[in-house]
Design a protein around this nucleic acid. Structure first.
Length: 853
RNA sequence: GGGUGAUUAGCUCAGUUGGCUAGAGCAUCUCGUUUACACCGAGAGGGUCGGGGGUUCGAGUCCCUCAUCACCCACCA
């Protein structure tokens, strides 16, 4: 079969993927050691972006590599319902039609979002295929699938029974726009310019006043104390007294608490337990009442004087300040910049509000997780992420797992309609009311935080607890993910994995960096600098995008998307294509098999040695997830060693069987990095019949003779020096003379061709320009006048060589170096010195032959 | 305020536990249509590895310090 000159990926990729699927190439083989990657499920609500390409590429390279190595490899795909994320996307969609979530019941909204997501799922699966992901589609899991919900319920029940879960009124981060609470980690703090208001709170007994500084005057209606530092002399006399709250005349105590900073503001602070975390904590310590004054929609409620009711927070703030000023309560205002929490999705200011929510007691879970992390049970790439995770776990607070949205897994808890403290666990979440005996229970309308259910992902997808998959593939091998979900997800998978299964969920964690825009800035839809992978795949090919995106990338380091890398990779795919074209042409269609694959020439031995070296390097890099380094090794072996030297050399003495052998092994080594083009080529190999590269096995060890391989390095040196000289002097068609070197006799034709010479001829005594890069005696027959033009280069080379010798001699003269450095290093230095001296001698002799300037 | 990472060629970045004359791709310059490939081949130029100090026989690599940048965590009213 004759291949076209240029590899056009678009002509083959879809057929190749279909071929793999038909052959069930991505199903675990059932043989070998298990190697599992449960893919982090992308959100099912939109298009995949270039970041998904990176993550898919890394996971797929690891999976294909392990599959070829003979491991029982499972790459398990999935999609995430992404609770709040998806609902807010859908709400934007509704807004375009002039609707909002309030137009529908929760059940109706859930159904609509389900359909909306279903539409996108086909799209998403198509994109994964275009990226060449070798996942087992038959095991595809959606985060709302039964087995995931069941596992979430199982976990919730277990925690419930063991008292790891409690329902409590706590301050939660509440978005008044979205109407839901968030975890701490979902709140984004931004610096905002504001004011500090100084308010006079008069003592009830008329003995004076205390001035408090606040950024939120509107919350004063919820104040239940004024706090000062216990050692602050200014206020010592007021502690235990009460002040009268302006506007409402409510009396509140003056308390002492050492969380107050005497240096800040006036050293006195108003305490609003229902609307500030620090105040809440202080309130707990002093047993203060908690008065909520802000409604979940962000307006003031009926706890405040009538004039302010229904007013949005910001408006109320201005109004309160104005009224206080008029009444002479406002001492002064100062400009002030501070950090304010915002909704990460809509940027609304987060209100700390008191809500009844389900909380998970994190202390014991975190403690167990820290234990396994510190014992290095899970290997992290890069390693530093492990310590960061430990630090995070050490400061972990209890986890609010309730969300007030429709799109999610309903919490299987019901409340006795007659007894608010009577909660029961029940999975009949399809019903709003259930009766048990003579009691009626009302379903908790909330759903789980997405991370609660997705933290069971590694074992829930495998069918915990009884399935064969779970028994075979758990704990999984690699968890490959981005740094942004190290805390919310990776940490929780470790904790819940340990808690539920008693074992770690994965043995290795690889954290990738982000793909930034080409200018290094963050990609974002609103800026419009997001790179869509599909057009890139259309233009350059899936392999090119894959290799281009992993090339030069280190774990956990953000780097810009670089078209040049993709072009480079496209060219590399084309190089592979043309290597195959050449070899298939030489080998011919009638070639029947590897047959007697014996190295004949020095080049053959050398190539096999490089191939073997490449195999070992790629393996050791990929074993440690150094994707970029592995790709780099492959690239340079194929291009520099194999194509530029071996193929060129083989034109003098083609070894058909060996060329076929080399091509086959190159395709195997390259397959994880360029699955499409390598499989496309494989399918054209007449001698391979109907086999499939994706199901093949990693190369066997190559055998070669070191001495023969060394000879080819000698040939290379002679060729390179000859090229350098003839280019510098612009001479063509020179002859290489040599005396009594058998390998030059054997390879005369080869050297003639590679170095563009007229001939390589044995003589008894040479004339012309003596070659200095080899210890074998050889000359280029360049006439003395022309050769003189080379004197300058010779001089430079001589000077450089003298420097090298000086440095090496200095090193060896240093007694502590010889004594302390490893013997291997010292021996190397000695050998280098010897070589350098030999070269210097030749250079000097040659240089002086031209006389002094 | 605390933490992490980065700073290496014109650009984007490698450089695995300290050990050859610090590398790659792209860009630049000079040649070249040699029947696998111009998405090509041959050759060349280009870096005192952010500044300073230290440890060591030896530092791009380890330590201290300064500078600049990025990100993460906490959030004092």
């Amino acid at each position: 079969m004759k291949l076209p000159k240029i590899y056009e990926p678009g002509l083959y990729e879809n057929d190749i993927y279909a071929l793999w699927e038909r052959a069930e190439a991505f199903k675990p083989s059932g043989k070998g050691d298990p190697y599992t990657i449960v893919m982090p499920p992308p959100n099912a609500n939109g298009n995949l972006h270039i970041g998904h390409e990176l993550t898919a590429a890394l996971e797929d390279i690891a999976a294909r590599y392990h599959r070829l190595k003979g491991d029982n490899t499972l790459l398990l795909p999935g999609a995430d319902h992404a609770g709040f994320e998806t609902q807010s996307v859908y709400e934007k969609h509704l807004a375009k039609e002039g609707k909002s979530r309030f137009d529908f019941s929760r059940e109706e909204l859930y159904r609509q979002i389900w359909d909306f997501v279903a539409l996108n799922r086909d799209n998403f699966e198509m994109q994964m295929r275009r990226m060449g992901v070798s996942c087992d589609w038959s095991r595809f899991t959606f985060t709302l699938d039964d087995k995931i919900v069941k596992t979430a319920y199982h976990t919730f029940k277990k925690m419930w029974d063991e008292g790891r879960i409690y329902r409590g009124e706590r301050l939660v981060n509440f978005c008044t726009f979205h109407g839901t609470a968030f975890a701490d980690i979902e709140v984004v703090y931004k610096e905002e310019k504001s004011k500090l208001w100084y308010l006079k709170y008069p003592l009830t007994d008329g003995s004076g006043e205390i001035i408090v500084a606040t950024t939120r005057p509107e919350t004063m209606f919820g104040d239940t104390a004024v706090a000062v530092h216990p050692n602050d002399q200014t206020y010592a006399k007021y502690i235990g007294k009460t002040v009268k709250l302006p506007l409402t005349k409510r009396e509140i105590p003056v308390i002492a608490d050492d969380f107050v900073d005497p240096q800040f503001g006036t050293g006195a602070v108003k305490i609003t337990p229902a609307h500030d975390q620090n105040d809440y904590d202080a309130g707990q310590r002093h047993d203060l009442p908690k008065i909520t004054v802000i409604h979940t929609d962000g307006t003031l409620n009926d706890e405040v004087p009538e004039a302010y009711r229904g007013m949005p927070v910001l408006e109320a703030r201005e109004r309160v300040a104005k009224d206080l000023k008029e009444q002479g309560i406002l001492e002064k205002t100062e400009d002030y910049a501070h950090n304010v929490g915002h909704c990460y999705k809509c940027n609304t200011v987060i209100q700390p509000l008191l809500r009844e929510q389900w909380f998970v007691d994190m202390q014991p879970l975190a403690r167990d997780a820290i234990k396994v992390l510190k014992a290095d049970k899970i290997k992290f790439y890069p390693d530093a992420k492990k310590d960061q995770l430990v630090t995070y776990l050490e400061g972990l607070r209890d986890w609010n797992i309730s969300r007030q949205i429709a799109w999610g897994i309903p919490i299987p808890a019901f409340q006795n309609v007659d007894d608010p403290d009577d909660w029961i666990y029940d999975e009949r979440v399809g019903e709003e009311l259930i009766t048990i005996g003579d009691k009626t229970y009302h379903r908790d309308p909330d759903v789980f935080d997405t991370w609660f259910s997705s933290s069971s992902w590694p074992y829930a997808t495998l069918g915990y607890p009884d399935s064969d998959d779970f028994k075979t593939f758990y704990p999984t091998g690699l968890m490959e993910t981005g740094g942004e979900i190290l805390y919310p997800w990776v940490s929780r998978m470790v904790m819940l994995g340990l808690y539920v299964t008693g074992d770690i969920p994965f043995k290795e964690v690889y954290i990738h960096g982000y793909v930034m825009a080409e200018d290094g800035s963050k990609m974002s839809k609103s800026v419009g600098n997001v790179v869509d992978p599909l057009p890139v795949i259309e233009q350059y090919g899936s392999d090119a995008l894959r290799m281009g995106i992993i090339s030069g990338r280190s774990p956990a380091v953000n780097r810009g998307y670089d078209t040049r890398k993709v072009e480079e990779a496209r060219n590399f795919a084309n190089k592979l294509w043309n290597v195959a074209r050449f070899i298939e042409d030489i080998v011919g269609d009638e070639f029947s098999g590897k047959g007697s694959c014996k190295p004949q020439t020095a080049a053959d031995h050398w190539m096999l040695r490089e191939l073997q070296r490449t195999d070992e390097l790629i393996s050791s890099h990929l074993d440690e997830y150094r994707f970029s380094e592995a790709y780099d090794v492959l690239y340079h072996f194929v291009w520099d060693d194999f194509a530029d030297w071996y193929i060129e050399a083989s034109k003098s003495a083609p070894n058909k069987a060996l060329l076929a052998y080399a091509l086959e092994n190159i395709l195997k080594l390259a397959h994880p990095f360029a699955p499409f083009v390598t499989e496309t080529i494989w399918q054209t190999l007449a001698w391979e019949g109907n086999s499939i590269l994706a199901k093949a096995s990693w190369p066997e060890k190559s055998r070669y003779d070191d001495g023969e391989a060394d000879i080819f390095n000698e040939i290379k040196a002679i060729v390179m020096e000859t090229r350098f000289i003839t280019t510098a002097l612009r001479v063509q068609g020179a002859t290489l003379y040599y005396t009594n070197v058998s390998f030059l006799t054997d390879n005369a034709e080869l050297i003639t061709r590679l170095a563009r010479l007229n001939a390589v001829t044995e003589v008894t005594d040479g004339t012309g320009l003596y070659l200095t890069s080899t210890k074998y005696r050889s000359w280029l027959d360049i006439d003395a006048d022309t050769a003189r033009g080379y004197q300058k280069q010779l001089g430079e080379k001589r000077d450089a060589q003298e420097q090298v010798i000086k440095r090496l001699e200095g090193r060896l003269a240093n007694k502590s170096y010889v004594d302390n450095a490893p013997k291997k290093v010292v021996d190397e230095t000695k050998q280098q010195l010897e070589d350098a001296k030999g070269q210097l001698e030749a250079l000097t002799k040659e240089y002086e032959r031209f006389g002094t300037e």
